[in-house]
């Protein structure tokens, strides 16, 4: 059996109600295991429960029903809180609201400082973490002079410096421009590949989900689909029905099939899609 880093069992959660309203159930029984070293994308529209799910992965929220284990540790056990948060780091949506310090290196050092890491080792960790996200030339910069993508990479470095097993990106690309998104995605892909860090990417962008090993689709507080991108993304009708988009390549291939082309619908990348079309065209000719 594969090694599990995060395990959720029948997880339920609802936010406290405003006066006179019934509490809004955000999660209605989610069971999910995330393998160590994998890259999992959690897809869903706003209000699908995907962010609430993410916040259970490092005990920012605690389950009202069911259980969550991080590396075998129950998130409800307060004595384990620091260790859980060290192992699962979280990058948030707004790059400005997670940077604590006025100088890049001091911000990256914030986590290790809290953990009581000796000074000399903090220095080593900070330098290594900045290198891992490709920001080593910005050590003494002020964060407010950086672009959105750079700020998010600093936030990632701040987590790397705590030597985590898993990084959860809670819609961390939603506020970035295309180049910022690319920067962040390339960084987490590399960390996943080279350092074996587990990545959980919460997003509503289909093209981002295509990068993962596994896609979990959330809707109405439940995990409604779970599989590889190649299995999930071509399910055009179902995805549309819950307010998500499909990549244009998939839409095109569906259309071409209707027109009598013999093409697969799971060609996700531009190259694959073009290849499939060329093959279909030459087969006819």
């Amino acid at each position: 059996m594969a090694d599990t880093i995060i395990k959720m069992e029948d997880l339920a959660f609802s936010y406290p109600a405003e006066e006179g309203n019934v509490p809004l159930a955000a999660l209605k029984g989610v069971s999910l295991s995330i393998e160590r070293g994998s890259f999992v994308a959690v897809l869903g529209h706003n209000g699908s429960g995907k962010s609430t799910l993410a916040k259970h992965m490092n005990a920012v929220l605690l389950p009202l029903g069911g259980k969550v284990w991080v590396d075998g540790m129950d998130t409800c056990d307060e004595n384990l809180l620091l260790e859980i948060r060290r192992r699962v780091g979280m990058v948030f949506q707004n790059p400005d609201n997670q940077i604590v310090a006025n100088v890049v290196e001091e911000d990256v050092a914030f986590g290790p400082e809290n953990l009581g890491v000796p000074t000399k080792e903090i220095r080593e960790r900070v330098d290594a973490a900045l290198k891992a996200v490709g920001m080593e030339d910005f050590v003494l910069q002020a964060p407010h002079h950086l672009s959105g993508g750079q700020k998010q990479r600093i936030a990632i470095a701040g987590i790397i410096a705590m030597e985590p097993a898993c990084i959860v990106l809670d819609e961390s690309t939603a506020m970035l421009d295309p180049s910022g998104r690319r920067e962040v995605l390339e960084t987490v892909q590399r960390l996943n590949r080279e350092k074996g860090i587990t990545i959980v990417l919460i997003t509503h962008h289909m093209d981002e989900a295509a990068l993962a090993d596994r896609v979990v689709v959330m809707d109405g507080g439940r995990a409604v689909m779970d599989g590889t991108p190649r299995e999930i993304l071509p399910r055009m009708e179902e995805l549309r029905a819950i307010g998500l988009d499909v990549p244009h390549t998939v839409e095109l291939l569906y259309g071409l099939r209707e027109d009598g082309f013999d093409v697969p619908v799971d060609a996700l990348s531009v190259e694959e899609c073009a290849g499939a079309i060329v093959a279909a065209l030459s087969a006819k000719a």
Partner: peptide, 23 residues
């Protein structure tokens, strides 16, 4: 911002000045 920052700080294991080291 204050709200989000507080959560972000907690996620980075901030728990007051006790046992804190310095860069």
């Amino acid at each position: 911002r204050a709200d989000e920052l507080a959560v972000a700080m907690e996620c980075r294991c901030y728990h007051g000045g006790q046992g804190r080291t310095k860069l």
